[in-house]
Design a protein around this nucleic acid. Structure first.
Lengths: 345, 345
DNA sequence: ACCAGCACTTAAAGCGCTTTAATCGAGGTC
DNA sequence: GACCTCGATTAAAGCGCTTTAAGTGCTGGT
């Protein structure tokens, strides 16, 4: 009936102290040591003991105290994850990180950076929880700072490339992603392909670079056009209106991410521009939103699930398998062609 | 230079154990007791001692161990927050919860429910962290279950009305919000106003009810039309296409939330429908997205900041001020008129 | 009858902090 | 000089768990 606790709880808000290991032990007439062993599934106790302990624990509604066991074992089995709570793509990563971590017996603690809460505060919080490792999604701190941090707990940079800081990186090949996008557009017949930038981060640099070199590869040096942008829908919207004002629309626009693309797309359509008839639009990330029929955005998928899995794997290798050398895992992104791209008029 | 730790850290991943209270104490030749007092800002130690301890702690880069202090003090100063990580509105609430909690000396631990992680798992996690109270955003569990839960730790239901379960509720008056929407539309001259439902939750019920009674109040009983919907953009998109298929558009459509409204809006515009020329659209929540110029959605603001503040306040009253009687705080939502509503043609 | 070896079980020492009661010294008071 | 007071400091006892070394009581081999 009750989905939250497996046993009856005595009433009176805060009146009943939660059962301790000792209470379970007393109930079956064993030592706390044995109960601890059983509850953690450590081999040793006899089958009969196991059953009795398990039963008693269930009867009492016993729930181990993480803080106490973390203190005693000096292992918190906690992974700290820093995210930007406003990003749909990051939300999806978190989802997959959860499942991946669970499989290897770790729990996640989320710390979010917002307008009012910066990266270092977020990390600070994670450390205070005694996380054994940190998974930072698209960190912006300088490499040296992250390297320092890695000395306190293994750090995995998820999404952002970091060279020679000695920490693990799990990312997808951003330049490759953009290259695929340009190839697709060129094969459709586009030549005037603009790119909307995504701020000053490393990821933005990689994608911009990917755009540039792909354009050159196709002999479209002259057509290279990089518009100043940012990571939010708002930025895309702004660029869209700017393009409309200038009355000089390219035949295709590629944006740093889906959020920006959606802002752009909506601004254009709202002004009566036919997408993909008049202009093709391509995003990046394969956000949940981009998949919606109403946007149906052509984009690049970063394989969120695999990224998450690899990040957790990297952490486990460091924590449980004693790896010390840093690793960089680069996954290949894949173009997802949907409804916002078509041959130019 | 280093934004993460205030002091130099000796290198060699994992080699240097983090400094303990004892280390700080030894450095200044005092007992751990005194150091503890200073670090927590408890009155007692002399000014001279304070300064010396603070300096030593900074020099060593000391960072208190939350788990240990939680264990010793039997207070974790942790508030558990359950969210749906895919909701922009909830993300915003979290932002405000963070600031509000910080002000009263609490920290947040976030647990997210996703497609693969249900509400009870999320709550379970929170409890395992020894959160002192739980703030559940739009919980769906039955009242009795939440009441049981409240016995283990004070629970605040944020957004969802719950009658007589003895737990705190902080929400905005959903029916009132819808009433304002209908008033606005009617004053613009609309009569055929449809409503897109938001699933089977309590919140959905309240809004639906608000819609119904407001329509009746305006003598529009005949015009009441409730379309089956859900909480995501996808649902709005579906409804939009359905409306287009039926070729029987109302002059205005009100949706359960902004996400649904955005799906609907995009589907309509994409099909060449002029919003608000042909159809007015109204959402609910005042999501970050709805504020964007590209959507510019008329919606209802729930005063996220105030909701968050009140939720934290409720928790503090229970935890630190010994309140035991449950409270329900109902805030008045406010209509935000933007660009998706206009008089009917 | 004795001991080695085995399968369990447990006493006890922490983990890094908080907290309470006790201690210490330096002034006052009479 | 004995006695108190009062502010500053600390010894020591935990918090709820883990872990290690040390027991138990058996069995079977000799």
């Amino acid at each position: 009936m009750n989905e939250f606790d497996s046993a009856a709880t005595a009433g009176g808000n805060g009146a009943t102290p939660r059962p301790r290991l000792e209470d379970v032990a007393a109930r079956v007439g064993l030592s706390t040591a044995s109960v601890s062993l059983v509850l953690r599934g450590v081999p040793g106790p006899s089958e009969r003991t196991r059953q009795r302990v398990l039963k008693a624990a269930a009867d009492l509604g016993y729930r181990p105290d993480r803080t106490a066991s973390a203190l005693a074992s000096k292992r918190s089995r906690l992974l700290g994850v820093m995210i930007d709570i406003h990003s749909a793509f990051q939300a999806e990563l978190v989802e997959h990180l959860h499942t991946a971590a669970e499989e290897v017996g770790y729990d996640l603690v989320l710390s979010t950076q917002t307008r009012t809460r910066d990266e270092s505060t977020a990390v600070e919080t994670l450390l205070a929880f005694r996380c054994e490792a940190l998974i930072l999604i698209g960190p912006v701190a300088p490499a040296s700072v992250l390297a320092d941090l890695d000395r306190q707990a293994p750090v995995v940079s998820l999404g952002r490339r970091i060279s020679g800081a000695g920490l693990d990186v799990v990312r997808s090949a951003d330049d490759d992603g953009l290259s695929q996008v340009i190839d697709h557009l060129v094969s459709l017949g586009h030549r005037a392909i603009a790119y909307v930038d995504g701020g000053k981060g490393v990821i933005a640099t990689d994608r911009r670079r990917g755009y540039r070199s792909a354009m050159r590869r196709h002999g479209l040096d002259e057509q290279i056009s990089i518009l100043h942008g940012d990571l939010t829908e708002e930025a895309g919207d702004k660029v869209g209106r700017q393009l409309l004002d200038d009355d000089d629309l390219p035949t295709a626009v590629v944006t740093f991410n889906d959020r920006s693309a959606i802002g752009l797309l909506t601004a254009l359509r709202r002004a009566g521009v036919d997408v993909p008839g008049d202009v093709s639009v391509v995003g990046y990330d394969d956000d949940t939103l981009s998949r919606l029929a109403c946007f149906d955005l052509t984009t690049v998928s970063q394989e969120a699930e695999e990224l998450a899995r690899q990040a957790v794997l990297a952490v486990v290798e460091r924590l449980d398998q004693g790896r010390t050398a840093s690793r960089e895992i680069v996954l290949a992104p894949s173009l997802v062609v949907r409804g916002t791209t078509a041959p130019p008029r």
